[in-house]
Each structure stands twice: as structure tokens, then as C-alpha cells.
């Protein structure tokens, strides 16, 4: 029912998208997809066509990548007899990239946590704390080694293994939208897809876009930031336990599951933002890495950043009130002193 409502709203909004002339003016579109509200603004070039195409693509990706839609490519794979299916080039490539991220992050990023997330009720919004035995049984099927890439576009899953691309789909979607905007010659744009941001061209006044990073300690306050990131072109993705959680018996359980334990990651971090330049495919990377770094915790995350495996910068917020920013962001990030975090630049 909620999805139907969201779809209806999306359709109506699409109809309500109107053209307003003036090339330098920012036009905007809202898309209700992937369980979030997506806000796109753009100007210059074929803005209207770009926004329309972006909208269509976002709905298509929602249909294809959602695990809760029975007709999606992901669901077809999850429910395939013998666990094998031809999934199409796009999904196969995305799964291949996801497996690479799993490998590179030592398993901190994992698309096979689907049954575990479901057991916690995060997939169906029916929160509960699963029994330890139940989790142990499910965890036996978790791990990138249970996903096999076959010839062509074939992918197969071991029995009991299910995939969920939720931790990478919005990042991938931001890459797709970025490509559409480039093709249509969009000069200035901000695209916000539920925790995933892509900006290009700086603002129309020729200055970098200002991106507020939500303070994880005050998620219900719209203007509570840990700081402002200035960026003209690039991706930024935030993962935080505060984005989705439930409480039982006085304990909070958030939605970012540690693939090593099957329990919500207790890494000492409350929010991780991964930032990268606007090169193609970086949106997907930022999305995957923001989750992985959150699971890794401060030390492992910073070691991973220092290793240079991927080209990115990061902003970490710790449970004990510290705000850590990697050296590459020193000049473009300004902490908000009123948030009360101890600010450190890490190198």
C-alpha cells in the first residue's frame, strides 16, 4: 500500500513537473523511489529532457533493483530455481562490482546479508530482534563466496543465499543520473537520492555547492550539521545508524548489519561520509564504501583510506564525540562548531 501510494505520488509529481523558461534558472524534480524522496535540481543544457530521463531511469532502477518487488531482476535471481538466472548485463555488472567491493573491504561490504536484514525486519519494516540460533543459521549463507558469476549475464547463488543491493543501488542510481546530466549538457546540478549526493558545475554564481552533513546526534533537526562540505563536482554519500533503527528493551538496533556478526555494526562510529570526485562510477563506490567504513570502525576505516585502494576522502563521526576528516578535505570542509564535536584532520 505504501509503495502504491508512493508510486501514485510519483506519477502525479511527474505530471506536475512544469517547464519554466530561463536557461540559468534551476529546475527541479522530485522522485519517490527506492523508499526515499529524491530531489534533483539542474540548469543549463537540455535540463528538462535530462530531468525527465533521470526520473524515468530512477523508476526503472527501482523496479529492477528492489528486492521487495517480485518482478524485479533481483527478485527473479533470488527466487530462481537452482539459484541461477540470466540477470541482464546491467545487474550482472553491478553484482560484479559489489563483489569487488566485498573483496577489497575484507567483507565489510556484503550484498548477501539480505536474509539477515529481513530477520531483523529492516526489509519489511517489521522490526524484531532475531534469536541467536536463527541468525547463526542465516549467517551460514552470508558471504560473497556464495555468489557466482557465470558466463555472459548468468549469476548463480548458493542455496539459502539471497542478495540485496540496497547498500549500493542508490549510489549506482546517482551514477546513472550523473551520466544523463552530462549527456544533456547540464551545467549546474545537485542530485540528492536519500543519503547519496551528486553535484556538478558548482552553483550558478560560480561558487562550489555547499553540502550540509547531517549531525547524527540530532537526526530530527533539519538544520543540524556536523559541518559544511564545499564541492563543485563530485559524489558524497553518508551512512549512519541514525537513518533507520528501532528500539527494543531499551536497546537501539540500527539497519547497518555487520557481515561478521549478523548484528547491527557496533564500530564506535555514528556516521560515515565518503566523498569522491565526479568520475564515472564513483557514486556506486561512495555508497558501498560508506557502508563498509561504517562497519569497519575508525581504525580499520582510516587504514583502508591510507591504503589508497580506492581514491576517496571521508568524514567520520564517532560515538565519543569526535569529527574526523581525511586530509584531502581539509580545505573544503568547515566543521560547525555549534555541533560540539572535537574536530581532527587525519593524514
Amino acid at each position: 500500500m505504501r509503495r502504491f501510494g508512493a508510486l501514485l505520488a510519483a506519477l502525479l509529481l511527474a505530471g506536475g513537473l512544469t517547464a519554466c523558461g530561463g536557461e540559468a534558472e534551476m529546475q527541479s524534480a522530485q522522485v519517490f523511489a527506492m523508499d526515499t524522496v529524491m530531489i534533483l535540481t539542474a540548469s543549463g543544457g537540455e535540463t528538462e529532457a535530462a530531468l525527465k530521463a533521470a526520473e524515468d531511469e530512477l523508476y526503472r532502477l527501482d523496479r529492477e533493483l528492489s528486492r521487495t518487488r517480485e518482478s524485479s531482476a533481483v527478485s527473479r535471481l533470488n527466487s530462481a530455481p537452482e539459484g541461477a538466472a540470466e540477470v541482464g548485463e546491467e545487474l550482472r555488472d553491478l553484482i560484479a562490482r559489489a563483489l569487488d567491493f566485498s573483496d577489497a573491504t575484507g567483507g565489510a561490504f556484503d550484498i548477501t546479508l539480505a536474509p539477515v536484514s529481513s530477520a531483523w525486519g529492516f526489509t519489511e519494516d517489521a522490526y524484531r530482534v532475531p534469536a541467536r540460533e536463527e541468525l547463526e543459521e542465516l549467517m551460514a549463507h552470508v558471504g560473497a563466496e556464495h555468489v557466482h558469476l557465470g558466463d555472459g549475464t548468468a549469476v548463480s547463488l548458493d542455496p539459502g543465499t539471497q542478495i540485496d543491493l540496497g547498500a549500493i543501488a542508490k549510489g549506482y542510481a546517482s551514477d546513472v543520473v550523473a551520466a544523463i546530466c552530462r549527456e544533456n549538457g547540464v551545467a549546474h546540478s545537485t542530485v540528492s537520492l536519500g543519503g547519496n549526493v551528486w553535484v556538478c558545475g558548482g552553483n550558478p554564481e560560480g561558487k562550489p555547492w555547499q553540502i550540509g552533513i547531517q549531525d547524527p546526534a540530532r537526526p530530527e533537526e533539519a538544520d543540524a550539521y556536523v559541518g559544511i562540505l564545499r564541492m563543485s563536482d563530485g559524489f558524497a554519500v553518508t551512512s549512519g545508524g541514525y537513518q533507520r533503527y528501532f528500539e527494543e528493551d531499551g536497546k537501539l538496533y540500527h539497519h547497518i548489519i555487520d557481515p561478521a556478526t549478523g548484528y547491527p555494526a557496533e564500530s564506535g562510529l555514528t556516521s560515515v561520509t565518503v566523498v569522491s570526485e565526479g568520475t564515472e562510477g564513483s557514486g556506486t563506490m561512495c555508497d558501498a564504501l560508506s557502508t563498509a567504513l561504517f562497519v569497519m570502525g575508525e581504525e580499520r576505516a582510516l587504514d583502508f583510506w591510507r591504503s589508497g585502494t580506492f581514491d576517496f576522502e571521508a568524514i567520520l563521526v564517532t560515538e565519543d564525540g569526535r569529527l574526523l576528516v581525511t586530509a584531502g578535505l581539509e580545505d573544503s570542509f568547515t566543521p560547525d562548531e555549534t555541533a560540539g564535536y572535537a574536530y581532527e584532520v587525519v593524514s
Partner: peptide, 9 residues
């Protein structure tokens, strides 16, 4: 005017 253009998180 110092308010951000986009917010993530």
C-alpha cells in the same frame, strides 16, 4: 546565505 544547498544523511 550560508545555508547549504544540499543536505546528506
Amino acid at each position: 546565505t550560508d545555508g547549504p544547498d544540499v543536505v546528506i544523511g
